[in-house]
Simulated assay, not measured.
Amino acid sequence: MMNLNLFLLSVAVMVSAIKGASINVQPVKLGNAAGDFAILAKTGISTVPKSTVTGNIAVSPITSAAITGFSLIIDSSDTFATSTQVVGKVKASDYTDGSNLITAVGEMKAAYNDAAGRDTTATNGIDNLNLGGGEIGGTTLTSGVYTFDVDVLITNGDLTFSGNATDVFIIQTSKNVKQAGSTSVILSGGAKAENIFWQVAQEVVVAAGSHMEGVILCQTGVKFITGSSLNGRIFSQTAVTLQMATITQTPYTQTRRGLRGLQVA
């Protein structure tokens, strides 16, 4: 009987492998300091009014002079500023508590490197390398790590992330992410924006009237064009440009989940 049970277990594992089973993907650790921001950038944040940002924003190591279009009002404590376009605080390296931003920027870079270093996974027996030649619009993605050495495009319709509340999705590209106008990133099955990570070596451009979901970890610039929106966060190692955009911060939990074992896709 024991030998039979072992045989059945082996068969089950083989079937799982054929179906593209993989160890559960761990979320990218943002860190407590970086996790305090909806937008964090190194060289500037600009807006064409009126944008709406729900959450704190900051620049470092550049000064507050690189935060433009927000009509900042410095708080009497000199530790932050406010803006009618920001539901939260605006921070910069030249404010009196700017030293904490050094930690935040370091954590932002570490998060980028973490996401970039993840191994590509397989789904339903298909290797997630350059899926669809880079065009993922009109598709549904399940939990996994998707790797591209071409531009990632959301131009052929809406993109859906399907999974439960703990499933993690990582999109890696050495190129750009370009989302066409009037398209949306959609969540289904309980999937959450805070568990979607976009690791982008070049530029992220979300065109007019489009909606994006997830945490953007970008080495270069991020642009949200007129009427576009994001449910997530933006971490840019250069600049962030908003044009009458809406950015809404998602939650961040420091605790990392443990592995849940093999799952059949």
Rank of each mutant, 00 (worst) to 15 (best):
191 A>I: 07
120 T>G: 05
182 S>L: 14
122 A>H: 09
98 G>H: 05
263 Q>L: 14
256 R>K: 14
65 A>W: 05
198 W>K: 04
127 D>L: 12
185 V>Y: 05
92 A>G: 08
224 F>T: 01
118 R>S: 01
30 L>I: 09
237 Q>H: 12
53 V>G: 01
198 W>H: 10
210 S>D: 06
246 T>R: 03
83 S>N: 02
56 N>R: 00
151 D>A: 04
210 S>K: 03
148 F>P: 01
188 S>M: 05
241 T>C: 06
166 T>A: 14
112 Y>M: 06
223 K>T: 13
125 G>Y: 06
182 S>F: 12
133 G>Y: 01
161 F>M: 01
210 S>Q: 06
237 Q>A: 12
89 K>M: 09
88 G>Q: 00
100 N>W: 12
58 A>M: 02
102 I>Y: 09
218 C>L: 08
221 G>M: 12
1 M>F: 09
50 K>G: 15
9 L>M: 11
257 R>F: 10
115 A>C: 01
62 I>W: 09
60 S>A: 15
170 I>F: 14
9 L>H: 10
91 K>Y: 10
218 C>Q: 09
6 L>H: 13
24 N>Y: 08
155 T>K: 13
243 Q>R: 08
197 F>T: 14
70 F>H: 00
9 L>S: 15
22 S>M: 09
13 V>R: 12
206 V>R: 07
68 T>R: 03
211 H>S: 12
133 G>V: 00
39 I>K: 01
7 F>R: 13
128 N>E: 10
89 K>V: 04
69 G>L: 01
79 T>C: 13
119 D>V: 10
99 S>L: 10
182 S>I: 08
198 W>T: 04
217 L>R: 06
119 D>M: 09
86 V>I: 12
84 T>A: 14
113 N>M: 13
242 L>C: 00
259 L>A: 13
74 I>W: 07
62 I>R: 13
219 Q>R: 15
42 K>S: 12
117 G>P: 07
149 D>I: 06
125 G>H: 08
153 L>W: 03
194 E>G: 06
154 I>S: 05
107 E>I: 04
81 A>Q: 02
163 G>V: 01
197 F>S: 11
181 G>Q: 11
77 S>N: 13
147 T>I: 04
143 S>P: 07
194 E>I: 07
105 V>E: 05
218 C>V: 15
210 S>I: 02
35 G>E: 10
173 T>L: 03
231 N>R: 09
